[in-house]
């Protein structure tokens, strides 16, 4: 389980040369997408990963329509049914849990929390990190010092402990977990953005923007930022994977979302009581759901890194 920092990806950041600050027009964009798709097809696995993620997104968005049962409906009469069981005229694809709730329906609803937390935490951490990194790299001096030392302090602290401490006090809740996991990620983004900004700051096209009298915010956000987006997408992809793992771990510890909301992590926590009785499906399916989702994000991240910086392929 990765909790926050994943130092191995520090070397994974492709240093993309400056692209013209203006975004490519429609046709070029389409050409770029075609090139990306071709490269995905050649690498094979990214296509599979994309398909899995599509399924997870569909489960998350259309969960209530797809789920055969209410994920919280308890029924003692049908508790702990094996997978593929028929009870009355209802069919339980992945069996039922100790309270008689349908595992498949809970799994579909669980996709919501994982994706929601994963993406929102990245949005929170990414926004803070990108702004901090841009400011740090562009202005330098004491602002840079303060921001980077703050980052050092945070990294010097095992992230899960920080998350545990805040969640114990704040109490469980989707918003709290998004905030805590998001704030746990900002340093990664800040460091990368800062390094890129430092080198871009001196480039001719930034000089040109400055000479043309562009305001500082405009230079930072419209001239520099577009050139950093590529490496950021790689980091974000790996990051979603590690945030989903962290969310599962915290839910497993009972620090995630309230018990009424089914999540993959809390389903695993509940499965612990049934371990000795060998109710394998209670632990197996939520775990597989986590592994497949995280694996897909990792595969996409790997592919994206190679795609955006072909030089790395020769060594990685």
């Amino acid at each position: 389980m990765s909790l926050g920092l994943k130092p191995e990806h520090a070397d994974a950041v492709p240093s993309v040369g400056p692209v013209p600050p203006a975004s490519p027009k429609g046709r070029e964009l389409r050409k770029e997408f075609k090139r990306a798709w071709r490269s995905m097809v050649v690498a094979k696995w990214p296509v599979v990963a994309l398909f899995i993620l599509l399924c997870v997104v569909i489960a998350a968005v259309f969960g209530p329509l797809l789920a055969p049962f209410d994920p919280n409906r308890q029924n003692i009469m049908i508790r702990l049914l094996d997978p593929l069981q028929q009870s009355g005229n209802a069919f339980y694809l992945l069996g039922t849990d100790a309270l008689g709730r349908d595992v498949f329906s809970r799994l579909l609803y669980g996709a919501r929390i994982s994706l929601l937390v994963g993406l929102c935490a990245i949005a929170v951490g990414g926004t803070i990190g990108v702004i901090a990194g841009l400011v740090s790299g562009y202005f330098g001096g004491w602002i840079d010092d303060v921001i980077m030392r703050l980052g050092d302090i945070q990294l010097a602290f095992p992230f899960i402990l920080l998350a545990i401490m805040f969640l114990v006090v704040l109490g469980p809740g989707v918003l709290n977990i998004i905030l805590v996991l998001g704030i746990g990620q900002w340093v990664t983004y800040a460091r990368i953005v800062r390094a890129q900004t430092l080198s871009l700051r001196e480039k001719e096209f930034v000089e040109a923007a400055r000479a043309l009298g562009d305001s500082t915010p405009s230079i930072i956000f419209r001239t520099i930022l577009p050139n950093i987006v590529a490496p950021l997408t790689v980091i974000a992809s790996f990051n979603v994977a590690s945030v989903i793992l962290s969310e599962a771990a915290l839910s497993f510890l009972g620090l995630g979302v309230p018990p009424s909301v089914p999540t993959w992590g809390s389903m695993l926590a509940e499965s612990r009581d049934q371990l000795i009785a060998n109710r394998w499906w209670l632990a197996f399916f939520p775990g597989i759901a986590i592994v497949l989702t995280v694996l897909s994000f990792n595969i996409i991240g790997d592919w994206l890194r190679d795609f955006l910086d072909p030089r790395l392929k020769t060594i990685g």
Partner: peptide
């Protein structure tokens, strides 16, 4: 190795308990 970076450690523990333990 790719798989290893995608498996939650606690789930791996549960699976090992089921397979190698029980």
């Amino acid at each position: 190795a790719m798989l290893g970076q995608s498996i939650p450690n606690f789930w791996l523990g549960i699976m090992m308990i089921m397979l190698f333990g029980l």
